[in-house]
């Protein structure tokens, strides 16, 4: 009875493991913390692996000792027999299990402390590219002070060049996390935190706010595009271009709607709308100058398609509860035109 139950349980576990494995094989893990693609993430992973191995060793020791104790000594129950020996201390043993962990901790501490000092440099080379990250409830603003470019929710960085992220918050505490490129750093209002790293492999990486920041904390995602040096140059050049004003058709109608609707109060399209002199610290809503060039909208919540954009404009609160963007009440033709305009902003 018991054995059959055990066998069924095992089978069940195997099935689960199998389906888990299929999922693992079939899918990618865009937020995987164990797939380092930068020098910082690699350094972290090396410490991570070392500590995990020591942990596993200790765990195995505990499990073996505990289960041996249970299986050897509980079987005697019920048998008439002598009382167990009432021993209550053993100096040698106690010294051993005090000294052993201390030794392991020393072995863990050395790489840890080294990594702590290596990952938080006070100085970085002049040629490092500075990216200002400004966190808002619930989206990300990115600025390149040395290039004059800015974007939102999708940051591009060149590979093999030192990047220096400066983290600022416009409201509450957020946390800037790109698992593949390194650990997170909190974005704290009133101070500027730093992350310094060299991305090694070009590609698209996911990121997400990791510190609870209010109603839509779950909807504060972003993408990191690590470009080749040339690719990055091209991207920057595109970003610096003014947007093309649509001459006619639906899109030009949409441009008029954009300018007349409240959109322009919070969002900027360079040269067309928004404040001539930009705020010192950022905008209330993402910069839309090159909106159509992004792959997602609403901070990584939806794919950037006309349909999704229409959904978002119609009812931002359903997509992102608590978002500051109001319901504008645009319908039918107006909405289509506005979407067409925004999607023309390559």
């Amino acid at each position: 009875m018991n054995r059959r139950f055990g066998a069924r349980w095992l089978l069940w576990c195997a099935l689960l493991l199998f389906s888990g494995a299929t999922e693992a094989a079939a899918r990618s893990y865009p937020m995987d913390t164990m797939a380092p693609r930068s020098d910082l993430a690699e350094l972290i992973q090396s410490v991570y692996v070392q500590v995990t191995l020591w942990d596993l060793l200790v765990l195995v020791v505990v499990i073996v000792a505990l289960f041996l104790a249970i299986f050897w000594f509980s079987t005697r129950f019920g048998e008439p027999g002598e009382e167990p020996v009432q021993f209550h201390s053993h100096m040698g043993l106690e010294v051993a299990w005090t000294a052993g962990p201390i030794l392991i901790l020393v072995l863990i501490t050395v790489p840890t402390v080294r990594a702590v000092f290596n990952t938080q440099p006070y100085h970085w080379p002049k040629e490092a590219l500075t990216v200002r990250v400004i966190a808002h409830q619930w989206w990300w603003e990115f600025r390149y002070p040395s290039l004059g470019a800015q974007t939102a929710n999708e940051v591009h960085i060149p590979a093999d060049r030192m990047i220096h992220f400066e983290l600022e918050s416009a409201d509450v505490i957020h946390s800037f996390w790109m698992p593949a490129l390194g650990g997170k750093r909190d974005v704290v209002p009133g101070q500027i935190n730093q992350i310094t790293l060299v991305a090694k492999v070009p590609g698209e990486y996911y990121g997400q706010c990791a510190e609870f920041c209010g109603a839509s904390h779950a909807n504060m995602r972003f993408r990191v595009f690590v470009d080749t040096a040339e690719g990055f140059q091209r991207w920057v050049a595109d970003q610096l271009k003014p947007p093309v004003m649509p001459a006619s058709g639906l899109a030009s109608e949409g441009a008029r709607i954009y300018q007349n609707a409240p959109c322009a109060i919070c969002h900027r399209v360079k040269g067309i709308s928004g404040f001539s002199k930009q705020y010192e610290g950022g905008f209330r809503g993402p910069d839309l100058t090159h909106f159509a060039g992004r792959s997602t909208l609403a901070a990584g919540v939806l794919d950037n398609t006309p349909d999704n954009l229409a959904t978002w404009i119609q009812d931002p609160q359903t997509v992102k509860p608590g978002a500051l963007m109001p319901r504008l009440g645009l319908k039918g033709h107006e909405l289509t035109a506005l979407v067409a305009y925004l999607e023309s902003l390559k």
Binding site: S169, D171, G190, Q191
Partner: peptide, 13 residues
């Protein structure tokens, strides 16, 4: 340390 290395910033919004 906070004052020395992460000098206070006046937020803008």
């Amino acid at each position: 340390y906070l004052a020395a290395h992460l000098s206070p910033v006046i937020p803008y919004l």
